[in-house]
């Protein structure tokens, strides 16, 4: 059991900490050139950095659960799909997708599924070469603190920097937009499928509506990361969904109409199925 616990904790670290890079906003730091000024009186240059903070999918699942939405195992990604992901982009997207599934399962306390999704995330982390980002010292500390939740939390906090540093050293920060996309599209897919019939009061409908703001940041982030050049098909999918979301701004009395919701739901489903 101890080995199992240790493995699981490692899996948590190896996969989830990296997948939590999906929340990691430091990847793209822009010097916003038009906001940078140089004073002719030789005062210091003002440096302006723009960063992104993406709330995790867990924020969505907390609300769904609190509102009494039942767990639906049919909407999470098939574990077997992981073996079909071979390119770096697909692996990173897969990691994001499985990370969202993992969050969903753990939020609903589905122990066995959670363990299964731990394992698949670990395997993808291995394929991406991310697992080696954790050194032996960290593993030893996990071993010593395996029964202390608070210590584990602190350890994982400390290890996050190791993970980011490792990604930077390996030149792999470019995979982070893919992980963010995977997390978002899977959590959106789970959410749209929690709604059986459109109603402006439905929690799923409301979440999808307010996700327009987050998705705009993702779209912005994709543009800054030049995803159009590295993966045009994915960029086009994101662009299509962005254009549907932009239509919500035309609404005057309601946040989202039934037609708009259905269009967005169909596009989310299409895009998610393109990339699982």
């Amino acid at each position: 059991m101890r080995k199992f616990i240790k493995f699981s904790a490692f899996a948590v670290l190896a996969s989830l900490l990296f997948s939590s890079c999906g929340n990691e906003p430091v990847v793209i730091e822009d010097n916003i050139s038009d906001s940078t000024s140089v004073n002719i009186n030789e005062e210091p240059i003002v440096k302006v950095y723009s960063k992104y903070k993406f709330p995790s999918p867990l924020e969505i699942f907390i609300v769904l659960k609190d509102e009494g939405v039942k767990f639906n195992s049919s909407v999470i990604n098939d574990l077997e799909k992981a073996s079909t992901y071979t390119t770096t982009d697909r692996l990173a997207i897969g990691m994001g997708i499985y990370s969202a599934d993992l969050s969903y399962c753990s939020m609903y306390e589905k122990s066995q599924l959670t363990m299964n999704y731990f394992a698949v995330n670990k395997s993808i982390a291995d394929k991406l070469g991310l697992s080696s980002g954790f050194n032996k010292d960290l593993m030893d500390r996990i071993d010593k603190n395996i029964n202390n939740a608070d210590s584990l939390i602190k350890l994982t906090s400390n290890s996050y920097n190791q993970a980011v540093a490792f990604l930077e050293e390996q030149g792999q920060t470019k995979i982070l937009p893919y992980i963010i996309f995977g997390e978002w599209i899977e959590s959106a897919y789970i959410t749209v499928n929690s709604t059986k019939k459109f109603s402006s009061d439905d929690i799923g409908v409301n979440i999808i509506s307010e996700q327009s703001l987050l998705f705009e940041n993702i779209y912005d982030y994709f543009n800054k990361a030049n995803i159009k050049e590295s993966n045009e098909a994915l960029y086009n999918d994101v662009q299509d969904l962005y254009e549907l979301y932009i239509e919500l701004y035309n609404n005057e009395d309601e946040d989202i109409t039934e037609t708009q919701f259905n269009n967005i739901k169909a596009k989310i489903t299409e895009i998610r199925n393109n990339w699982i």
Binding site: M1, V26, L58, S106, T114, S157, Y160, N161
Partner: peptide, 22 residues
């Protein structure tokens, strides 16, 4: 066994929400 499992699950819950940056 269950307690340890819960511990891991809880640690995941915290881990996935822990944002510590550069």
């Amino acid at each position: 066994k269950i307690n340890k499992l819960i511990l891991i699950l809880l640690s995941f819950v915290f881990i996935s929400n822990t944002n510590v940056f550069s």
